[in-house]
């Protein structure tokens, strides 16, 4: 239940700068808040609304559309088992059932110790590596029941900490776009022909040249 920390506000401002309109940064900032708290807290949504200049209701309106945004606390590890067609054919649904038994919870719920949230999810683009799953959006391919149990043990003991960060952390490498590196953030209101197009137009017959109209 928290607003963004001062460090994250700086990061948020850097992210907002990259877009011609601040509201475009709404989803990236929700990810940032989720990285900070493990889930998307109400206060964070209010704060994001202030940062991008929309009401908190609009932030909620957008965030509630996307299933990756968890508006309630979830486990440290979200175990997402794919059961869509390619994985179903290779035993994804059976793997889900095994996972429910191993963790002692039904799909969609969290273990009492707050470590694991189990979900059955749609295609995660690992179709040739079925059955596949993700833990906090890190892939595990061709998982047997034994592999699953071993993976859970390793997660519990912290041996996979390097591979699987806590829930909310996506890319560990960020695009680092400093203000002085930015070339062309162009708000839609600016009716400016880009220089390389204008230069070519000037070089050729002005009537016949218009970039992109090959």
């Amino acid at each position: 239940m928290s607003r963004l920390t001062p460090e994250n506000v700086e990061l948020a401002k850097q992210i907002i700068r990259r877009y011609p309109r601040p509201k475009s940064a709404l989803i990236p900032l929700c990810h940032l808040a989720q990285e900070q708290d493990g889930h998307l807290a109400d206060d964070a949504m209010v704060h994001i609304g202030e940062l991008v200049g929309v009401t908190s209701a609009e932030v909620l309106g957008t965030a509630s559309f996307y299933e990756m945004f968890k508006r309630h606390e979830v486990g440290k590890y979200c175990v997402n088992i794919c059961t869509n067609i390619s994985c179903q054919l290779m035993g994804g649904e059976e793997l889900l059932e095994h996972a429910e038994q191993t963790l002692g919870i039904r799909s969609g719920s969290t273990t009492n110790d707050g470590l694991f949230t189990l979900e059955d999810v749609e295609c995660i683009a690992a179709c040739t590596e079925a059955p596949a799953l993700q833990v906090n959006y890190r892939y595990f391919h061709r998982i047997s029941n034994d592999d699953f149990d071993q993976m859970i043990d390793e997660l519990r003991s912290g041996r996979l900490d390097d591979v699987v960060p806590p829930h909310g952390v996506l890319a560990k490498v960020r695009q680092d776009l400093a203000e002085e590196q930015i070339a062309n953030i162009t708000p839609p209101e600016t009716q400016v022909m880009p220089r390389w197009i204008a230069d070519e137009a000037a070089k050729n017959d002005p009537a016949a040249s218009e970039g992109g109209q090959a």
Partner: peptide, 27 residues
């Protein structure tokens, strides 16, 4: 070719590793 001011590379949210690789490559 088309005279674009900006390119937005929209990667699927669930693909953390792809996001890392593209972020590093862009840097």
């Amino acid at each position: 070719a088309i005279g674009a001011a900006q390119v937005f590379l929209y990667v699927r949210g669930e693909m953390a590793h792809a996001q890392e690789r593209i972020a590093a490559a862009l840097n």
